[in-house]
Design a protein around this nucleic acid. Sequence first.
DNA 1: CCCTTATCTGTATTGAGTATAAATATTGAT
DNA 2: ATCAATATTTATACTCAATACAGATAAGGG
Lengths: 213, 213
Amino acid sequence: MSIVPIDRRTRKRLATRQAISDAAARLFDAHGFDRVTVDEIAEAADVGRMTVFNHFPRKEDMFFDLDDAAREQVRAVLRQSDPEIGPIETLRLFAHQVVAEQRDYVRFFDASPRFMQTIAESETLKARARAIRDELAAVVQEGLAERAGQDRSDADAQLAANLLLATWGVAFVQAYQTFERNRDEAEAQRILLALIDQGSIGIKAAMAGSPYA
Amino acid sequence: MSIVPIDRRTRKRLATRQAISDAAARLFDAHGFDRVTVDEIAEAADVGRMTVFNHFPRKEDMFFDLDDAAREQVRAVLRQSDPEIGPIETLRLFAHQVVAEQRDYVRFFDASPRFMQTIAESETLKARARAIRDELAAVVQEGLAERAGQDRSDADAQLAANLLLATWGVAFVQAYQTFERNRDEAEAQRILLALIDQGSIGIKAAMAGSPYA
DNA sequence: CCCTTATCTGTATTGAGTATAAATATTGAT
DNA sequence: ATCAATATTTATACTCAATACAGATAAGGG
């Protein structure tokens, strides 16, 4: 995936970051987010306390570690998509493609089984999850408006983007709950996509007559 | 509105609470939420620091002070509504009624002009606003499911509730921005209701065939 | 081997929030 | 009015995240 960095400086920096991330993940999983202090993480990673904050400005950043990639991918999808297909449909197809090809969203339930539990137990993490959702909505809003040649703060773009992220959020949570109930990955995927489709129908209806449909 | 409480104890308690709330509102408005400390509020209200936390567990609670009423009203609307009219339509009509009769939502832009600015400047307040939105979505979800005789965690109810709150949130923000731009209350109301109507159309379409339509 | 710069680290401070226990005020009963 | 029970206010002390700042260490580029 990623190329090994040339210079030792960068290599060491990434190694330090990884050590902190690993230690944090292990401790959060074992004791829950709120019952682990930054000092304990620094100790476990054998690193000074300030080094932790150097790599992760907020404690939550050690938990949610893959934001930028998702943001950029959504931007790219909206920019490179077929102009014949509406943006909502484009994003719906994108979701289907992700699930079908990579299966990242569901595999990742399995990869860290306590992921959602850990979030559910921590008000801080829930707040951060909501913030990320809103940041993603802003990205989608901007992408939609740009594609339609509208103002960045266009009301319809904002409505469409927020309806979309609401849909994705509900789909994700419901799929996770399904997976937790019966460990059936296929069923969880089915729920995920069915809810995304259902939401997309609604958003298209709300946007009928606008370039966002 | 509210009856004067019989006993002195309650009267004093409410007076203390009000003094804290007033001092906080004044300071937040003057300096911004993050540049006011709880100690300063306690000082301004002539009250011990712990008394502040006694009445307002979190600093944000001094800013957002009217949550329970809204929650209960939404619950009541869903419970007492005409069974012939679908729940989404019921809530849409409720929004229209509130705007037409009380005009509380827009008057309150005017009553505290820096309200939205103060939120926009503070990451803490934005987080709390998002949490309140999600709490309200949970209330709506529960009301919808109850009315339809479904399980509390029903996927369709969750989707409908989250689409609804997304719509209301966008409508509110856009109405506020419109009001700020040209101080036209009627225009702001028009935008608010138009977006709520537009979102409602979408939600009904997404829920077609289910009891939530 | 020096110079510059990036990274790491310790110390100190701020500020929200919690725990605890003591002081004070209010009520209700005798 | 007095007394006991209870609610409210308050001070003290603590935890923890986050920021500011300054010094130490390590790496890169001549």
